[in-house]
């Protein structure tokens, strides 16, 4: 009996040491959903200059500059420009002007200059150049004074 206790205790101890501690693992699941998104940041507005024949007022003319916009998207959206409806012309200009907004893009998407909608299918960032041209036909000419027009660039 005197030996029983130490022997039994040692046996139990050995049995316990022989077993590794039971470790459990549990996965922690993370889910995330990104829906189609688009961000437009206007960097610069454009500048239009008049052509030598005074029939074109355009950001394409010498001295003119396109407006620039940075676009960031997940893809699954489309980019377009609206017809120009908001213009301010000097009082001396009483003849009709045809305004044509266009845009082009470089970066994740390469878009040649267009006035139509473009589907952006892949994610990425682009630099969008927005141009505007006003033209007069026949014998009509642009008058001196301040012109202002607003181009709507849409991402949807």
């Amino acid at each position: 009996m005197k030996l029983f206790r130490p022997v039994f205790g040692a046996a139990v101890l050995v049995a316990c040491l022989d077993r590794a501690a039971l470790a459990t693992t549990q996965n922690v699941i993370f889910n995330g959903t990104i829906t189609a998104t688009c961000a437009l940041v206007v960097a610069t507005n454009g500048t239009m200059t008049v052509s030598p024949d005074l029939q074109s007022l355009s950001s394409h003319n010498s001295g003119g500059s396109a407006g620039t916009v940075t676009l960031t998207t997940t893809g699954g959206v489309s980019l377009s420009v609206d017809p120009v409806t908001t213009t301010t012309v000097p009082a001396a200009d009483s003849t009709a002007t045809t305004w044509t907004p266009t845009y082009s893009a470089s970066g994740a998407h390469t878009i040649a200059e267009t006035g139509s909608a473009t589907a952006l299918t892949v994610p990425g960032a682009d630099l969008v150049a927005v141009n505007l041209a006003g033209t007069k036909g026949g014998s009509n000419r642009f008058a001196s004074g301040n012109y202002q027009a607003t181009v709507t660039l849409r991402c949807e």
Partner: peptide, 21 residues
């Protein structure tokens, strides 16, 4: 649609329009 003209009073203004469907 969310619309803004971040830099008004320029010769050629750009209105940024983000539209959700």
């Amino acid at each position: 649609c969310t619309e803004s003209i971040p830099f008004p009073n320029q010769q050629t203004q750009i209105r940024a329009q983000i539209c959700g469907k």
